[in-house]
Amino acid sequence: MIRILIVEDDENIAKMIEAVLSIGGYEGIVCNDGAQALHKLLTESFDLALLDVMLPGLDGFEILEGIQGREVPVIFLTARLDVADKVRGLRLGAEDYIVKPFEAVELLARIEVVLRRVNKSSSVLSYEDITVDIQKHRVTKGGAEISLTPREFEVLVFFLQHVDIALTRERLLSAVWDYSFEGESRTVDIHVQQVRRKLGLQGRLVTIPKLGWRLERQ
């Protein structure tokens, strides 16, 4: 199981992040003090660290400076959207920078991206008899290869990564079509329908009224 260190001084936020991580199938370890977090990062092994910037004791930047050379990818969580801070964090080697407040799936998606970049996430996903090889861009169902357009492929991957989690249209849009997409949101619906039809996911990739879709494990 992938271990993620949560460094956050607010108890409720730490608890929330832990819950979000468990939805994504990760193990979250909470630490609410900067110095302690640095010690943990230097002595234990983690696949990822979520660092709050404003912390008692050491702040997020100082922790990041302290673990230079350790191969732990870091995502910053901060209440402030400050360009200078962002640049400072990224220059110190942070993988990403998430501004509070954030949605659960957004956090999961960004974690997924970082883990894939550092090759920590598996490149093969499976759901029932469907297997998806992300690197080879191949989808098989019951051994038979299924041809998908690149967008459809990404939609499928996103659903497989978030099984049993409701995904909103906006989330899919920003994950698959990127944030800059300004087309019709109906596009998303059409792609989801295509994926459902091509992979025979009727009854499992369900539509949730006013929210979006969810790929449900039987």
Binding site: D10, N12, I13, K15, M16, I17, A19, V20, I23, A79, K100, P101, F102, E103, A104, V105, D164, I165, A166, L167, L211, R214, E216
Partner: peptide
């Protein structure tokens, strides 16, 4: 952040 996070969890979790 915690309101939004927990609210979102309650919304999306099956």
């Amino acid at each position: 952040t915690s309101i939004m996070g927990f609210g979102d969890i309650m919304r999306i979790k099956r």
